[in-house]
Amino acid sequence: MGDRLRLSAALVAVVVLTALVAPVAWPLDEQAVDLAAKLRPPSWAHPFGTDEVGRDLLLRCVHGLRVSLLVGVVAALAATVVGTAVGTLAGALGGWADRVVMRLVDLFSSVPHLLLGIFVVAMFRPGVWPVVASVAVTHWLSTARIVRAELLSLRTRPYVDAAISGGASRWRVTVRHLLPAVLPRAGLAAVLMVPHAIWHESALSFLGLGLPAHTASLGSMAQAARGTLLAGQWWPTLFPGLFIIVPTLAVAGLAGAWRERLDPRRRSELAL
């Protein structure tokens, strides 16, 4: 577990640093068009090659990573906040409130994922925030279910009984005893959701519904390169693809290590 954790953490650090620092350290214009140098294979001047209008692919990948990470992290956070709030409402109140809320959740999840996402994006002008909203709206359901299930099981613990006898209000029991117990799990769900959200953004952009065409996003780059791949030009597809896959794997690895730490069955170090 140690090695996996270290490798994943290092990869995540590299990815985040790249996205944060590179565009500031090398303030080059990722939109600069050079029609004289279109679709060049990787070289010293353009390590990832150039696209069909001669834009540097390395530069665009780095900017695309920035956009994708931003969308992924913000969308996952938003989805987690919404999911935790809804799950807590259902789990802490129980009874009919729980039934009503969970039927709504079921209703939401019966609508196909992508369709709902497309619907949300289509309501607004193309941009980052509609995409974030679209991802958040389609991803909070699982968190709500996890949080609710955890709360329902925690609610039967004797320590909740003791808190009730100790005069604690429903609000206090929820905020002080129940929520802190589910937050690590909700946090884990959020981390696992980041790669998912990146994929979702890429898919929307790939379908041409995500970010405006000129914005460098990993998905829209892969989409734009579709035609050239068949002509034998592999680099405009490969590099954005790698930039989607590597952060995904790194974040998933980190989340996996975290999950192992949460596992209550892990042997305690000292059992007297």
Partner: peptide, 18 residues
Amino acid sequence: GCGKSVLASALLGLLPGN
């Protein structure tokens, strides 16, 4: 907490790593 369970773990070779 007097150490009797640890003694049992030792006899079964089930002591933790530390």
